[in-house]
């Protein structure tokens, strides 16, 4: 029962985080908040990927003095490697987005997209 709770709270939590982010991207009007929401979506999907590779009662995929051989059970290393990549890519996108926000703010002196021609939707 407890395992069930743990597993599904990871899946459910990360999916919910993605949708909180999506809702934020769609509903917020402040450009910085939209980027924050995008960051939340990134975190959510990263968490979900790692959770999909989780194996119950397994070890972190490192062979060291604690787990001296690969006979022990390990969690799946591939999603972890993917998530490493995805975190860095997400940060790169957010940083570029913030630079754009700063430039747009210079021009319009506002962060509100409904006051910016070309960003209204």
């Amino acid at each position: 029962m407890l395992n069930f709770l743990e597993e599904w709270s990871f899946f459910g939590g990360s999916i919910l985080l993605i949708f909180i982010g999506l809702y934020g991207v769609l509903s917020r009007k402040n450009m910085i908040k939209i980027l924050i929401s995008l960051g939340l979506m990134d975190t959510g999907v990263n968490l979900l990927l790692v959770a999909l590779g989780y194996v119950e009662a397994a070890n972190a995929p490192i062979i060291n003095s604690v787990n001296p051989s690969n006979a022990a059970a390990f969690v799946d290393p591939i999603p972890q490697a993917l998530v490493l990549t995805s975190i860095v890519i997400g940060t790169a996108v957010l940083a570029l987005g913030l630079a754009l926000v700063m430039k747009i703010y210079d021009k319009y002196s506002t962060l509100n997209i409904s006051e910016i021609r070309g960003l209204k939707w």
Binding site: V93, G97, L100, V101, I104, G118, L119
Partner: peptide
């Protein structure tokens, strides 16, 4: 910049 932000 706005176009790029939208695309981003």
């Amino acid at each position: 910049y706005e176009a790029s932000f939208k695309y981003l």
